[in-house]
Design a binder for these strands. Structure first.
Lengths: 120, 120
DNA sequence: TTGACACATTCCGATATAGGCATATAATGT
DNA sequence: ACATTATATGCCTATATCGGAATGTGTCAA
């Protein structure tokens, strides 16, 4: 088998950096395809394809406005990701604590004076 | 071009559901490869490959223990994801935002003393 | 050394991607 | 009807994936 489709999941959809940039830009409000393509330095077909993926996973919605198509955020699709990552929140503080411990150890080592073989 | 490597990014690494399951399981503490494979219903080589990806992006660390290799979480790699998704928090739910605003208004109103027309 | 166990790595095949480019569709104005 | 603008889609190639099976590497014990 190959990798799961980019359209199978919000996780897969946002794995692509340009699609994340699109979503960030859309935080400022609805945008047309050409606008997005220009501001992100990509071609119009690229933007259209990325937007198609984002739409298929429900991260953006479209609205016809004359000959333009305005894309806007539909952030509900990001909730699964936020919830999944949020399940690890309590471990971050632990690693921060460990970072603190490490810093303390460094300070202490510096006070005790340099040893041989301390680097690498 | 093809899709970005799964090892290029934490975003790409966790796009795979089985790798997310591994990380969730590791919340309970260090685990051996065979343990993970058995509990997640995958073969040992599959587990090894997924763990390699997770290790290359810095989401897990290994520790040799006899003939076993114990894998443990290194959640610092998840921070970029949490921060990115967190940037959308205020868009998730208008009702949540309004609830927050409402709470803020309540606090402020309590300090200033009750007025007419503070709601809506 | 041999055997047993835990784990990593390889080769294979099928599949889906992202980019580039051309072209099709759609809506508007004249 | 036609031209113009905005967007979508199709074709192509190179590449990286995941799964499966086999095999390689490493560690311990007798």
């Amino acid at each position: 088998m190959a990798r799961a489709a980019t359209t199978s999941d919000a996780f897969n959809a946002i794995a692509e950096p340009q699609r994340r940039e699109i979503l960030v830009l859309l935080q400022g409000g609805e945008r047309s395809v050409t606008d997005l393509a220009r501001d992100l330095g990509m071609t119009q077909p690229q933007a259209s394809k990325h937007l198609r993926v984002l739409r298929e996973v429900g991260l953006v919605r479209v609205r016809g406005a004359g000959k333009q198509r305005l894309y806007g955020l539909d952030v509900r699709g990001l909730r699964p990701i936020h919830e999944w990552v949020g399940g690890f929140e309590r471990f971050w503080s632990e690693s921060f604590d460990r970072l603190d411990e490490y810093v303390q150890e460094l300070k202490q080592a510096r006070q005790e004076g340099p040893h041989d073989g301390d680097d690498q």
